[in-house]
């Protein structure tokens, strides 16, 4: 994807330069030509390592993988890999992944928004706010294996909170059907980073709600509830939906926490892919590539939604 764009640029530069010489009367073209001719090659050489790295270590492996998804084991072009993905195991994994990502994203966004509103608007102490923001900056980057074991110590069979609930209310949450190595266990664990991410993204948006709007609404007769219903929440809405998409993608691609917590017990796409890479459990290398492509498509879609909505939110809050 990078390659054609780069050649395009150098081609058009030549063309434009030639045009510029043959038709000096056309001002815009000559201007552009001289602008391009002024391109210092030293600067381009300076950025070359970055682009080479991106090309070789990011784009090429991804593109090669995507290409593999369209090739059968003999090397012929095919769409058969996608048809072969239609097994209960794979479709089940996608369904479970989407459910897990949706659940942790929705809960994370709702609770995170509540927390951000509470801290940013309700409590109104700058100290509390600063502590919460610092904490969220840290916690949003705390995930993976250590997080999984921290939750085992908390809500595992022998976890502190599990024991505390039993002692206090006489309820054994495991007997009641809870399991950390299950859908809801994973969801709760994911909230540990999903909520802080929401807070760090939503807090600037909440700060962007101007006092004037609330005052204008109130002088037009709106109660506090009516303000939030018609103005506050609708303004936060694009940011919130964008956050939702980002959280979705974030948990869709995450594996370390889930793997450390459940091993292969929960059937989600990244764990299936992990198993496939380690041991070719699908018995077809290119089936793995197709699986990866499916994952890329879901994540690209979610991220595209996030970016579009973020642009919209920024336009409003300028």
């Amino acid at each position: 994807m990078r390659m054609p764009r780069r050649t395009e640029v150098s081609l058009s530069e030549k063309e434009v330069a030639e045009l510029g010489i043959s038709k000096p009367s056309e001002l815009p073209i000559t201007q552009r030509a001289s602008a391009l001719r002024r391109l210092d090659w030293s600067a381009l050489i300076g950025v070359a390592p970055f682009f080479i790295f991106a090309l070789v270590m990011m784009v090429a492996p991804t593109v090669a993988l995507i290409a593999n998804a369209f090739v059968d084991q003999q090397g012929h072009l095919t769409f058969g890999n996608f048809a072969d993905l239609n097994t209960p195991e794979v479709t089940g994994a996608f369904a479970e992944s989407i459910r897990l990502s949706a659940a942790s994203a929705v809960l994370g966004a709702v609770i995170g928004l509540g927390l951000a509103l509470n801290v940013g608007r309700g409590i109104g102490s700058t100290q509390v706010r600063s502590i919460v923001m610092t904490f969220c900056g840290v916690a949003s980057n705390f995930s993976g294996v250590p997080l999984a074991f921290a939750f085992v110590a908390t809500l595992g069979r022998l976890g502190l909170v599990t024991a505390a609930i039993k002692a206090a209310f006489g309820i054994d949450i495991y007997a009641a059907g809870f399991d950390l190595a299950s859908f809801w266990g994973l969801t709760v664990t994911y909230l540990f980073f999903q909520i802080p991410i929401t807070v760090t993204i939503m807090m600037p948006a909440i700060d962007g709600l101007r006092r004037d709007w609330r005052e204008a609404a109130s002088i037009l007769g709106a109660s506090s509830w009516q303000y939030w219903r018609h103005i506050g929440l609708p303004i936060l809405w694009p940011s919130l939906l964008g956050t939702l998409a980002l959280l979705f993608a974030n948990s869709f691609g995450a594996i370390a926490t889930a793997y450390a917590l459940t091993g292969y017990a929960v059937n989600i796409v990244p764990i299936l892919l992990y198993a496939q890479i380690r041991g070719d459990v699908l018995h077809n290398e290119n089936l793995g590539a197709a699986l990866a492509l499916g994952m890329i498509i879901v994540m690209a879609f979610a991220n595209a939604i996030y970016l579009v909505l973020r642009t919209r939110a920024e336009r409003w809050l300028r």
Binding site: A54, A60, A64, G253, L273, A292, M299, A300
Partner: peptide, 23 residues
Amino acid sequence: VEFIVLLPLIVPPIILVFGYVRM
């Protein structure tokens, strides 16, 4: 550059390393 920097969001680590293992 902005697009390249966004790529890791779309291509999660597991897929990138899958690509490495293949390539």
